[in-house]
Design a protein around this nucleic acid. Structure first.
Length: 479
RNA sequence: GGUCUGUUGGUGAAACGGUUAACACAUCGCCCUCUCAAGGCGACACUCAUGGGUUCGAAUCCCAUACAGAUCACCA
């Protein structure tokens, strides 16, 4: 059996969106599962749509996701992507297009866009382009060619019969040839069309499994016609269902939907994003959802790719990102979180302590800022915050309790979460209070919030004795 | 409009003719608890788009209808 080779073939027309990335992921997984090769090929045959920097974004994204490709032109000791516009310079696409003409499977077309448009007008909805150039004699063609008339090369299609192929996820697809148009292979600017370059390159690069979005499902038969015209083997097709923004729309950068980079900027981890999107349109056979890339390559199975569009659910991604953060090695977690802590709180605090305090409650890195902002400066707050049903507290009770807290803390020498808690818990017992009745007002005094990370004693430990005492005093004064 | 494809809860989904229709997210309860989280437990589809078949038996097979998406370029 031949080696499995897949490719990711994006066109550099903008940002890398989630659906695109998932297609790349699947292509990668399919190759790697069988120890095959994964290839990156930039399809930039449309000169009009090139977007500056788009290739870099694709390249960077794949790198961040560890979706590395296995071959390509040498770029400073590294594999670069294959780029169709580069490949075109050798004239291969044009060469193959002309070869098809020699084979009698394609023809020159000298029609202008206006002429085609005219036919379209006349025929209306059931438009099917009938190319008058097919009737041209050899001499006429030669004459036009020599006169330098612009031309395209179109595929010959016999309108009789049907063309069918087997897709690994959608099954057997059959269409009638008369619905297939005689597509342009080589454009008048000498560039190949996407469809043509795609087939040529897939064949030349010995791609065994063509993985792409299901928007190509209905044009796949056209590709087969090209393969057949050359007498080439047809690859295995794997069409993936779309990733949707909602019931009706696909996820797309054009609508301002989140791209991979947007998500990373918000504090989502590439590993988590990859894990999550793997599950959009594919389901593992075991009851499990958390998979590293390596585990995915083992578990992945083309047969379990679904056929229906999946709606991208940011809530579930957020949850999964939190799982990754919580399961992470302590040191790695700290390194990740550190810059966010430093950004909002400066260098005046024990960052490790803060990292511990927020460990279980961070789902997205960007949440950290708001979570710990009060450490710098107490939030502005109303005395109403002292009301708490569970703690049975209100401003009056707080007024009575806070001095007690102040007194016990004032005499405390060793200052850490444990000592603070022990001292306060003992005091609470003396006074016949529940712990919470004592802790809640303290939390509010220290943070100005009804909800704060780590618990009152942890916050005190982070703030330090002096600041803790100050804030409690301030609270007493205002009550 | 033609062609192709799809339709299980708010979301991702399992099920490959016979189960109380898994599991996860979200939501809502309860427990734990110094708040919130995290963690634990539980609730949540009178039913698998609808209508017909086939079958002892159907979410699973067949046919129609409805709805949705894709595609019909010298775009990719």
């Amino acid at each position: 059996m031949n080696k499995v080779r897949t490719r990711f073939a994006p066109s550099p027309t903008g940002y890398m969106h989630i659906g695109n990335l998932r297609t790349a992921l699947y292509a990668y997984l399919i190759a790697k599962k069988d120890d095959g090769d994964f290839i990156l090929r930039i399809e930039d045959t449309d000169q009009g749509r090139l977007v500056e920097g788009a290739v870099d974004i694709i390249y960077e994204t794949l790198k961040q996701c560890s979706l590395s490709h296995d071959e390509g032109p040498d770029v400073g000791g590294d594999y670069g992507p294959y780029v169709q516009s580069d490949r075109m310079r050798s004239g291969i696409y044009s060469e193959y297009a002309h070869k098809l003409i020699d084979l009698g499977k394609a023809h020159y077309c000298f029609c202008s866009e206006e002429e085609i448009e005219k036919q379209r007008q006349e025929q209306g909805d059931s438009f099917y382009f009938v190319d008058p150039c097919k009737l041209l004699s050899k001499e006429e063609i030669k004459e036009k060619l020599e006169s330098g008339a612009p031309y395209t090369i179109r595929l010959n299609v016999d309108p009789e019969g049907t063309t069918s192929f087997d897709d690994e996820v959608y099954g057997r697809i059959t269409v009638e040839n008369k619905t297939l148009d005689e597509m342009v292979l080589l454009k008048s600017d000498g560039f190949p069309t996407y469809n043509f370059a795609n087939v040529i390159d897939d064949h030349l690069m010995e791609i065994s499994d063509v993985v792409r979005g299901n928007e190509y499902l209905s044009s796949a038969p056209k590709y087969n016609l090209i393969y057949e015209a050359f007498g080439w083997d047809i690859p295995r097709y794997i069409h993936c269902p779309p990733v949707m923004k909602d019931e009706h729309q696909k996820l797309s950068k054009r609508n301002g939907d989140a791209s991979f980079q947007d998500l990373v900027a918000k504090g989502y981890l590439p590993e988590a994003i990859l894990n999550y999107i793997a599950l959009l349109g594919w389901a593992p056979s075991e009851d499990r959802e958390i998979y590293s890339l390596q585990e995915l390559t083992k578990a992945f199975d083309v047969k379990r790719i679904g056929t229906t569009g999946a709606i991208f659910d940011i809530d579930k991604l957020t949850w999964m990102n939190g799982v990754y953060l919580r399961n992470m090695d302590r040191e790695k977690y700290y390194e990740l979180v550190k810059p966010y802590i430093e950004d909002t709180v400066g260098t005046g605090f024990d960052h490790k302590l803060i990292a511990d305090a927020i460990h279980d409650r961070v789902n997205i890195l960007s949440e950290i800022h708001d979570m710990i902002l009060f450490l710098n400066k107490e939030d502005k707050y109303e005395n109403e915050v002292f009301f708490n049903k569970k703690a049975k507290t209100d401003p009056e009770i707080a007024k009575a309790i806070l001095p007690e807290v102040y007194a016990t803390l004032k005499d405390l020498d060793e200052w850490n979460n444990d000592t603070i808690f022990t001292a306060l818990a003992a005091k609470a017992q003396d006074l016949s209070y529940k712990n919470i009745t004592m802790m809640y007002p303290m939390q509010v005094a220290l943070s100005g919030r009804s909800v704060a990370p780590g618990g009152a004693t942890m916050i005190a430990a982070i703030l330090g004795k002096q600041e803790t005492l100050n804030r409690i005093q301030n609270a007493i004064n205002r009550l």
